[in-house]
Amino acid sequence: MTQTNPENTTPHKHGIGVHDALDTLVQMRGERHIVVTNQVSSRLWPTLSDHPLDLNYNPSAMGGAIPLGLGLALAQPDYEIIVLSGDGSLLMNLGCLVTVVDSGVTNLSIVLLDNGQYEVTGGQKTPGYNGANYAGLARASGFPCVHHFTEAATWQNEAANSLSGTGPRFVWLTIRPQPGDYGKSVGRPIQKQMARLRQQFRADAQ
């Protein structure tokens, strides 16, 4: 089990900028990586990436991205699935960490964007704002590969390694809150994204 600074209590205001966090993933993402975003990340990711294996899960139900990504991982074992989840969404569905491990899936990585806030609704604090140990939760749920990053440079250097260990993997990023206009979706409509994803599966299978 790998863990970086499990007891780190870096305040969110000193965390990684969300654009830096996502841009690092864009840079290291391979051709067989399916990236599932939701909530804030589903608004930002399309401004950085337009890949056939992107699924910007919007409209979504909070807490649904990780189970949806788990389903994709089970159905398409030849791909690596990266799910971006906010801390508010994860807290609505913490049990899914146990479900992921129990399913036996190995081709799934969860990247937690922990800004301590419900950013879409205006920045109200989540219940985990004051020091919830998400690495501890993942580890206790049975994740064999757990990392925590609080600095952009470290995340940039370690992203590829942290997302290539024995799966399932859990990467906790402490994120600096960044208010923005998250009320509108800028990506492709979800129906078109799903159709494009299926088309890519068929093309890759040939």
């Binding site: 699924l55 139900a61 807490g63 649904g64 991205a65 990780i66 189970p67 949806l68 990504g69 788990l70 389903g71 994709l72 991982a73 089970l74 159905a75 398409q76 569905n93 049990g95 899914c96 146990v98 479900t99 129990d102 399913s103 799903m194 994803l197 299926r198 599966f201």
Partner: peptide, 26 residues
């Protein structure tokens, strides 16, 4: 088929959704 235990029913619908997008039949 594979039996998948979920902790809460809300997981079940999204999990089924991901499986169906991926071409399975849950």
């Amino acid at each position: 088929f594979q039996l998948i235990r979920v902790c809460r029913e809300g997981e079940a619908w999204a999990l089924a959704g991901g499986l169906l997008i991926g071409g399975s039949l849950p």
